[in-house]
Design a protein around this nucleic acid. Structure first.
Length: 362
DNA sequence: GTTGATGATTCCTC
DNA sequence: GAGGAATCATCAAC
């Protein structure tokens, strides 16, 4: 017997019964076994519609009788089977999505930033990395670092609280729908599989809301990060003592102003700056020194009075002095540094920068 | 507001 | 990866 026939038989078995017959298994069996002609579907529908005209008590009684009918489970089973094989099976294929790559990206980012996952200092690693990359005085960086961490912790807290709310709402709604469907399964064919599918749909809807939350959180983190990095991009001049230390090293190693890693570390320690700042400083210093040399070879040499005036005008005045060429050791030109594998052999400038001010006459 | 100095960044070469 | 060169962005003096 195919599904259609079984269903119709089932309906006939129920629909064709009088109120008195319902609940009387013998009567049903009798009718079926006699091979009574199947009732017209119109009749059945009419009887169903007639239920709405009945009083509440009558309807309740009929409902109860239908629920208790011994054929009901079989009928529901057939109907469920048909549903599975038709609409739900088609929908089921469509619903089985692969994991969304966007959600995976968002999850990875939130994890990396320390927003999701276990608490591990609220992105202090990211902040520390950014601080190390950008340099800045230790005090400043620690202030900005803690500020960044505090803001990130705030984002983390909001994210988790919202996530919790969504999860709670999702769970409540799922329970509600499940109860509703279980309740309805008494009066209409609903298989457990269908309930499961419905739960999956609800979870999918809620996960799309979660994705929005994750997106917003990621955006907030990116904004915070860019603000944090922009803030550290603000340049602050090194203090006078630090500049003097760096200049002292530069001019006393003018023949080969390439400090080793150890020297850089020592200079960084002395100046209270990072090694990368020392590297930056020497990089800038070399290039600007060379430029000044080149420029001044094309210009008339300033008088010593002018030079000294300019030299003492600014902090330290080394840039000006070097620009004037007064610091250039005999025989050194800017191109000498180009071959770093073969540093030029030149005489070192006389004395430390501090004493060079008075020794600029040569 | 303009200008020069200067720390930082980026791109490129070696 | 280190360094050179160009450039950006900011500071500070005027």
């Amino acid at each position: 017997m195919d599904d259609q026939t079984r269903m119709m038989t089932g309906l006939t078995g129920l629909g064709g019964l009088s109120q008195a017959d319902v609940g009387d298994p013998d009567s049903v069996r009798k009718q079926q076994s006699l091979g009574q002609p199947q009732q017209d579907i119109g009749d059945i529908l009419q009887q169903i519609m007639a239920i709405t005209d009945e009083s509440l008590d009558e309807a309740q009684a009929r409902k109860h009788a239908l629920n208790c009918h011994r054929m009901k489970p079989a009928l529901f089973s057939v109907l469920c089977e048909i549903k599975e094989k038709t609409v739900l099976s088609i929908r089921g294929v469509q619903e089985e999505d692969p994991p969304d790559p966007q959600i995976m990206r968002l999850d990875n980012m939130l994890l990396a930033e320390g927003v999701s996952g276990p608490e591990k200092g609220g992105g202090s690693a990211a902040a520390a990395a950014a601080a190390a990359a950008a340099g800045g005085s230790p005090t400043d960086s620690s202030i900005e670092h803690s500020d960044y961490r505090a803001k990130l912790a705030q984002i983390r807290q909001i994210y988790h609280s919202e996530l919790e709310k969504y999860e709670q709402a999702c769970s409540e709604f799922t329970n509600h729908v499940m109860n509703l469907l279980r309740e309805q399964s008494r009066t209409r064919p609903i298989s457990p599989k269908e309930i499961e599918r419905m739960v999956a749909i609800i979870h999918r809807k809620f996960s799309s809301i979660q994705m929005q939350l994750k997106q917003s959180t990621c955006e907030a983190v990116m904004i915070l990060r860019s603000r944090f990095l922009d803030a550290r991009r603000k340049r602050r001049n090194f203090n006078k003592q630090a500049t003097e230390v760096l200049n002292e090293y530069f001019y006393s190693h003018l023949s080969n102003p390439y400090p080793s890693e150890e020297a850089k570390e020592e200079l960084a320690k002395k100046c209270g700056i990072t090694v990368s700042q020392v590297s930056n400083w020497f990089g800038n210093k070399r290039i600007r020194y060379k430029k000044n040399i080149a420029r001044l070879t094309l210009q008339p040499r300033p008088t010593q009075v002018d030079t000294l005036h300019r030299a003492t005008h600014l902090t330290g005045g080394y840039e000006e002095l070097s620009g004037s060429g007064l610091y250039t050791p005999h025989g050194l030109d800017a191109n000498s540094w180009q071959d770093t594998n073969n540093p030029p052999s030149v005489t070192s400038p006389p004395g430390p920068p501090g004493s060079v001010h008075s020794d600029t006459s040569n």
